[in-house]
């Protein structure tokens, strides 16, 4: 079933974020920034999965679907930019 597959993917992605969050703390600055960027992108990927599959925006009329896509993509870009502009 599609929503069960999405749920499993979300759980796996959470385990991955949690694991990389732990790995991130000790490494050099460049490595840390790369992991931080990956964590933000993964978070917005998860949010998009929830929007499209659980909230069913993926099957909604295009107007609503595109607002959802724009929110996820726009926020991902804004967060990555703000994060990477900060000194490491």
């Amino acid at each position: 079933m599609r929503i069960t597959a999405v749920w499993l993917l979300l759980m796996l992605a959470t385990a991955l974020s949690w694991g990389s969050g732990l790995a991130e703390s000790g490494g050099p600055a460049a490595w840390r920034t790369r992991i931080g960027t990956g964590l933000l992108c993964l978070a917005l990927f998860k949010a998009r999965l929830i929007l499209m599959h659980f909230m069913e925006a993926g099957r909604a009329p295009p107007f609503l679907r595109w607002i959802a896509e724009a929110w996820a993509a726009g926020l991902c870009a804004a967060l990555v930019l703000l994060y990477r502009l900060a000194p490491a």
Partner: peptide, 17 residues
């Protein structure tokens, strides 16, 4: 939506260092 907001809030506050 409550789930979705937490999914972003959690890594932002707890993980992204």
């Amino acid at each position: 939506m409550v789930d979705l907001l937490w999914v972003v809030l959690f890594p932002l506050l707890y993980l992204v260092g």
